[in-house]
Nucleic acid binder design. Structure first.
Length: 424
RNA sequence: GUGGAUGUAGCUCAGUUGGCAGAGCCCCUGGUUGUGGUCCAGGUGGUCGUGGGUUCAAGUCCCAUCAUCCACCCCA
């Protein structure tokens, strides 16, 4: 077959058995998030490009090479969101939620777009479940947010995970460290691969992300950022760690954990899968106490994280779903029809039942044998058969697919008969 | 952006030194004049990713190109 249109690179079709898995996870996540006090937020997938340029920050990979950006006929630059935090902050300000008392807590489960090279667990359109808690700078909230992330993983039985936490300081102490780091890197520039050197000027902290052994060795000889943060940040970090211990959230400190986005400050964290060579980073998050202000609002502390849904699913089960082998949606009653008149009779009969259970009327006009086979594949519990005799007698043959027992049922008695057997 | 692997039926894949394009699964029909899960028989389905080249002859060899997957970079 020469199919004319194919899905875009890095995108996927989610359906049949796989979408059942998504629904299962989504239902559990929604429940957990509600228990932690989060309400859903849905924002547009397109935003002004500037929103991401200024929040995520130029010099990050996301902004420099991964955004789906286009221009409207009017000359306005728009971008498909590469992440959600900026949009939530924008919505928070735009809808006047600054006037709401207490901490605003939003969650989302939504598609994001990054023009990256696809590979296992990495897509151009991918989905994140995440949350943003805006309005509180308490370190206790940091710990609760990290615990919430773990609760989301536990809710879908994800195991073998490690929480890594770090503090990257605030505008009081971070710049001095960055400056020292830059000087240190310049002095040892021969140890830095050529293609990474530009990072020294743009965003030296991100050198910690490099997996290059030489760079790792070099940075091991430099003072960790946690030794350089100011007293206020230090105290904040200590309380986060202490609270995590009190909450029994297993975690380890990782002073090399800096995050790729500019807006983070103080607490940053990441949750990774300890086994498997695939994309092991399942969750990333941190505090962003200056983003709201930067977006034009009053100084407002906030924290959030996002979990990659595809990656989490990949971590849960390595078996890919084969569309060929996966079932269509289940039904309770399957109606097999011999001929067009029988289909009409079948539909009217199904209409009686639909207020009560799931019914599929077969309009394929295949052999009754083939239709019965489909009934079985759909895991129907009862097969109703309609042919010329049934139309004439105003009844349906009703077969119990577990026992094989079959008997005619008058249409006027159909609902009562079905209720009796399905409830009994 | 860099590197590696793979493209043959709807799916998973065989295809020998270059010589008639195959199997399993799925699907359809029949065995059962109107009935499922097992079984048996038959059948539908292919521009061999695409375009060039070599050759009497190319799925097979050569070149190019596209797509997919994997890895790097980075990230969810």
């Amino acid at each position: 077959m020469n199919i004319k249109y194919r899905r875009l690179k890095g995108t996927r079709d989610i359906m049949l058995e796989e979408i059942e898995r998504w629904h299962w996870c989504e239902a559990r996540w929604t429940e957990v998030l509600a228990r932690y006090g989060y309400g859903e937020i849905r924002t547009p997938v397109i935003e002004p490009t500037d929103l991401f340029l200024r929040s995520v920050g130029e010099g990050t990979d996301i902004v420099d090479k991964e955004m789906y950006t286009f221009e409207t006929k009017g000359g306005e630059s728009l971008t498909l969101r590469p992440e959600m935090t900026a949009s939530v902050v924008r919505a928070y300000l735009e809808n006047g939620l600054i006037r709401q008392p207490g901490t605003i807590k939003f969650y989302y489960m939504a598609p994001m777009f990054r023009h990256d090279r696809p590979q296992a667990g990495r897509y151009r359109q991918f989905h994140q479940v995440g949350l943003e808690a805006i309005g509180s700078g308490s370190p206790v909230l940091d710990a609760e947010v990290i615990q919430t992330a773990m609760a989301l993983f536990e809710a879908v039985d994800a195991r073998g995970l490690m929480v890594k936490v770090n503090s990257i300081g605030c505008p009081e102490c971070k710049p001095a460290y960055v400056k020292d780091l830059r000087v240190f890197l310049q002095e040892n520039i021969e140890s830095v691969p050529v293609n990474m050197r530009s990072r020294i000027d743009v965003n030296p902290l991100r050198m910690y992300d490099a997996k290059d052994e030489g760079v790792q060795e070099l940075l091991a000889g430099f003072k960790p950022i946690t030794d350089s943060i100011c007293d206020a940040c230090r105290e904040h970090y200590e309380i986060v760690l202490a609270t995590l211990r009190e909450l029994d959230v297993p975690h380890e400190e990782d002073p090399t954990l800096v995050r790729g986005l500019d807006y983070y400050c103080r607490t940053t964290f990441e949750i990774t899968a300890t086994a498997g060579r695939k994309q092991s980073s399942l969750c990333g998050g941190g505090r962003y106490d200056y983003l709201v202000e930067q977006c034009g609002g009053p100084a407002t502390p906030a924290i959030g994280f996002s979990i990659g849904i595809e990656r989490t699913l990949l971590h849960l089960n390595d078996d890919p779903v084969d569309p060929q082998r996966s079932r269509q949606s289940q039904v309770d009653i399957y109606v097999a029809c011999k001929g067009l008149d029988a289909q009409r009779y079948g539909f009217v009969s199904a209409d009686i039942l639909r207020g009560y259970c799931r019914v599929e009327v077969d309009t394929s006009d295949r052999s009754l044998k083939a239709q019965a086979k489909s009934a079985n594949l759909r895991r129907a519990r009862f097969l109703l058969t309609v042919g010329e005799d049934e139309i004439r007698n105003d009844n349906l043959q009703m077969k119990n697919l577990d026992t094989g027992e079959q008997k005619p049922v008058a249409r006027s008695q159909l609902l009562a008969a079905v209720r009796e057997v399905l409830e009994g």
